[in-house]
Write a protein that binds this DNA or RNA. Structure first.
Lengths: 192, 192
DNA sequence: CGAGGCCTTGACCGCGGTCAATGCCCGTGG
DNA sequence: CCACGGGCATTGACCGCGGTCAAGGCCTCG
């Protein structure tokens, strides 16, 4: 149950068995069914999740238009990050796109772990760096690229998601409408 | 020379005089003239800067088109962050828009400070959180808002920059051409 | 006074949006 | 087993925002 988490973490920091023994009990196993919500906008995101299996989309609504910020699958940490970091009510939603199994860590537990094992500050700093770098890439692609380029980048970088994520959600990730994505796909398949 | 830095830091963590005595010598004073570059693309960003006075733009070039990621002024930390975090060559540039005075901290010194004073992990984690939250806001505004809305948001949030940053650079920050920004301003002033 | 930067304005264009019609897949019930 | 209905993808007609190119006005500085 904790294997994947420990393997994942080992890429960032190293911890003794004793330290793991103290840390792991803070993680609680959670199962959730396809299309159920883990977090809804308006709630404050009190937990961060490590995904053992399954798939999620994190998205928000603005004037009735959905935008997906991220698709999260096995062996990643995920949450509605802005809300989790600020402990303010979330404008984002987190919804299961498949039946999923996760380990949940409460915000207060994380603060406790920071205190007891300062090396976790380093771990989460590194995760935050990656989140930052991902966002920076995303902005760059929005400013400098057309929707068609963004889509072909998406295919290249996320072939595993292509099959699992419905097209309409990919469209909202790219910042365009499902109609436009359909046209783009039509264009691409014409030109082989 | 270190007053502003210490006041800024006190908002995040508290340090004893002894700790400050160990940390401050790692910061080196630097002066730079208007329109000179602190970092050019292709170089690896080895330092992060605390700005005592002055103004900078951080921008990159793609297919001959400039995009400004950020304007940094007094009492902030700034650098070409992606390069600094990854210690890979930068695709971003950092240029002084005014004569400026800064405190520079080398990447290796930062790692040393992390080791000697783990509370700095927490400090930088918090700075990274803010950087992340800023980027998240920026993406949201690109996806959900028109150029005109982004501009009026910019005016509201950065009145102090309006006078100091040339219009063409504001345009590249908004992700539009100087020509379009000029049109938008024309529109706004017609409708008072 | 002339030169170069920057901002403005006009004419025109193309990407992606909206609205609506049609097609396709699939689950459910008669 | 087939008929129907709902959800999603596709396609067409049309539109508007912001881009490009080019011309003209205004500053500053030598």
């Amino acid at each position: 149950m904790y294997d994947q988490l420990q393997i994942f973490t080992a890429d960032y920091i190293s911890l003794s068995s004793a330290e793991w023994g103290d840390i792991l009990p803070y993680f609680k196993l959670v199962n959730i069914a396809k299309s159920d919500f883990l977090i809804r906008e308006g709630q404050t995101s009190s937990d961060i999740y490590f995904i053992n299996s399954g798939l999620f989309r994190i998205f928000y609504l603005k004037d009735g238009i959905e935008t997906s910020r991220y698709f999260a699958s096995e062996n990643e940490f995920a949450t509605t990050l802005t809300s989790f970091l600020t402990q303010q009510p979330s404008f984002e939603n987190m919804q299961a796109l498949e039946n999923s199994s996760l380990l949940k860590l409460h915000f207060d537990s994380l603060q406790l772990i920071y205190k007891r094992h300062p090396v976790w500050e380093s771990f989460f700093r590194q995760l935050l760096q990656e989140a930052y770098l991902g966002m920076a890439k995303r902005i760059e692609s929005f400013i400098t690229k057309s929707a068609e380029e963004r889509y072909s980048d998406f295919i290249k970088l996320n072939p595993h998601l292509l099959q699992r994520v419905p097209q309409q959600y990919i469209a909202t990730y790219l910042g365009i409408t499902p109609v436009s994505l359909s046209r783009i796909r039509g264009q691409i398949s014409k030109t082989h």
